[in-house]
Structures are given as C-alpha cells and as structure tokens.
C-alpha cells in the first residue's frame, strides 16, 4: 500500500484525468444525493453524507439487459449484452456500501454458480472509497463489524483532511486507475497519517446508535412464531423501500419483454416485501402477510446470512431506517428480540 496526498483544488483535475471508465460520483439531486455517471467534474459532491440509493446498482443494475433477441426465419439472432460491459469507477463510496459489495460477492460469485454478468461488472469496477467523517444519526456500521474508516473492499481509499485528501492505493486495480494522474499526487507526511487516525477516533465517538448482535441469531430462531413479529410489522405498508435501497439485498426477477419479432431478457430487482415474490402458481402464498415478509427480512439479514456466510447481511448504513415511511427501525427490532418473553425454554 502506498500513500499519497492530493490538495482539494486538484481533486476535480484528478476526476477528469480518469479516462476509459464510466465514473460514478455522488451528485446532488433535489435535497438528496445519487450516484450518477460524471459528466462534469464539478458535479461530484464528495462532501455528501449518504446517497439515497446505494451504488450497488453500478455492479448489479436494477435494470440489466441480459440479451436482446430477434426472431429470424431461420432461427434466433441473440446478442448477449455480456460483450458490451464497459469499465466503471465508483468514486467516493462509503465503507458501508463497499462492504456490501463484499457481501454481494459471497452471493453472486460463490461456489458452483457464478453469475457471469455480475462477475464481469465486478471485475471491471474499481472502487474508490471515501472515509466517513460525520455519520448520520441512524448509522450503526460499527456495531456490525465495520467502521467509518474501514478499507475493506476498496481499491483506493480517500480520507478528507483539512487541506486535502489522503490517498491510499490498496490494490493493483487502484494503481492502474491512478497511473495517469500520478503527477497530481504528492507524497504524504506522518502528520497526515496521524491526523487520519485522529479523525477516525473523532468520527467513531460521534455514533449515537448501536446494536448488539451477539447471540441474537439463536434467540431469533427461538421466537420465530412469536407475535413479536406481528407487532413490529404493524406499521408496514408493504412497499419495497427497505429492500430496494438496501446495499446488500440482491433478489432479482427475470422478465421477458418483447413482441413476436424481437425482444429482450431483462433482470430487474425484486423485493421479498411484495406478495408476488413468494406467490405459487397454485395461488398459495407461504408468506401471506406483512408479518411473515418483514420477519423474512430480519431473519435473512441477521440469521441466515450469518449461518451461510459467517457475515451479517446488514452493513449498518441505516437507509432502511431513514427511508422507511412508517418508522420501522431495524435497530429497535433486533435489540427488542432480547426482551421478548416467550419462546425461551
């Protein structure tokens, strides 16, 4: 790992010097932030708090065309979109979202069945992380095994200092990305590194909410049938905000869209919060109500993921809490498990 420094006014130059990539940067949209392809370096708002939608959709787009096809008199004419995947940079991703990419890897690249579209995009993506200096009220990444300055899953890691950014090049991919812009980077001093450690501590002290996950998975399984889940999901309206905006959710549906002559096969995000998600052809629905569907969400994040991958399915970004229209609070729900009376033999 090599460490450099870049002054703040040169940041835009650095962004423009990245060639051959689609650079996704946090941009302002209304009063929210969104990751979008950079058209002008001035659009990048690196001082952003959190993007409304996680940047997972660079690697796992909400709307991914798998193939286009045409029906010809003598057969099919198929164009696989795998051949057209370009190169991407996610610039300024927060540690929580970068860690979520790691989690997605365990799902999409694990074992026998590697998802080729995801794999290609993942390989073509360079992740430039940006350390978090001011967590939001509902952030709790420290409680789920990460922290605002974690570098897990980053190729390049940036830390905002008073007079510039500390640039840590972690992987070869990162090196390749910055190869053209080396002239903009200066060496860093020990003072910068100690300043970084100071910022890290200051930031960690700012966290308000936390969650204690130890032993919760067993406890949750104990009370699987409890009315507790009915009570926590009382306010749920069954929208998909918590899952669609979750950086670790990866459920999808395949849609065939087209006419008799031509069409496309598209992969779109799906959500376990919709009744159609588990609907059987017989019209039986094993998760008939919001109780079962919300319970599934908590269990997937905090029980099943841990069991299967030794990694929690929650990175503590707090989006589902911030954006839930009816204040369903995953911290409260998981903490509340301890106080449920029934089911503890």
């Amino acid at each position: 790992m090599t460490t450099y420094k870049i002054s703040k006014d040169k940041m835009n130059e650095l962004l423009t010097s990245i060639k051959g990539y689609d650079v996704y940067v946090p941009t302002e949209m209304g009063d929210k932030f969104q990751f979008r392809v950079m058209k002008d370096a001035g659009d990048a708002k690196l001082g952003y708090s959190q993007s409304a939608k996680p940047p997972k959709d660079v690697i796992f787009p909400q709307n991914e065309v798998l193939m286009n096809y045409k029906i010809q008199p003598n057969g099919f004419d198929v164009e696989n979109s795998l051949d057209h995947i370009g190169k991407f940079v996610i610039f300024g991703i927060r540690n929580c979202d970068a860690r979520a990419l790691k989690y997605l890897d365990t799902q999409m690249l694990n074992g026998k069945y590697v998802d080729p579209y995801y794999a290609k995009r993942r390989e073509n993506t360079t992740v430039v992380g940006l350390a978090c200096n001011s967590p939001l009220y509902n952030c709790f990444c420290r409680s789920v095994g990460a922290g605002p300055h974690h570098k897990e899953g980053h190729d390049v890691h940036l830390t905002e200092l008073d007079d510039g950014y500390l640039v840590e090049v972690i992987t070869d991919k990162g090196k390749e990305l910055l190869a053209n812009s080396m002239s903009l980077l200066a060496g860093s001093s020990d003072a910068d590194t100690s300043k970084q450690a100071e910022l890290k501590q200051a930031c960690e002290a700012k966290f308000v909410r936390k969650i204690d996950v130890k032993g919760n998975d067993k406890r949750m399984l104990d009370i699987f049938e409890s009315d507790y889940w009915r009570d926590v999901s009382d306010g749920c309206i069954g929208c998909g905000i918590c899952t669609l905006l979750c950086p670790t959710c990866f459920c999808f549906d395949i849609q065939d869209i087209g006419s008799r002559k031509e069409g496309q096969r598209v992969r779109v995000w799906d959500s376990c919060q919709y009744p159609e998600y588990t609907m059987h052809a017989s019209s039986h629905n094993p998760r008939p109500g919001k109780k079962e569907r919300q319970r599934q969400r908590f269990f997937h994040k905090y029980v099943y993921s841990y069991k299967n991958n030794q990694m929690l399915g929650c990175v503590g970004c707090g989006r589902c809490i911030n954006q839930c229209p009816t204040q369903i609070d995953i911290i409260d729900v998981i903490e509340g498990v301890k106080n449920v009376k029934e089911g503890s033999e």
Binding site: I237, C239, G240, I241, Q255, E276
Partner: peptide, 29 residues
C-alpha cells in the same frame, strides 16, 4: 427516471385497495 418502483406511493394510498394490482403482475409467459 429516478423512480425505483418501490411502490410505496401505491401501498400507502388509502384509495388503493385492489388485491392484485394492474401494474404489478408477474410476467406470464
């Protein structure tokens, strides 16, 4: 173009009460 189709606007609506919605159908082959 920013809509993520979470359907919150539909679900929260007190005037939307259909059991099956005309805009959300599983894609029948």
């Amino acid at each position: 173009s920013t809509c993520v189709r979470c359907l919150a606007c539909r679900n929260v609506c007190p005037a939307c009460y259909c059991r099956e919605c005309s805009v959300q159908r599983s894609n029948p082959a």
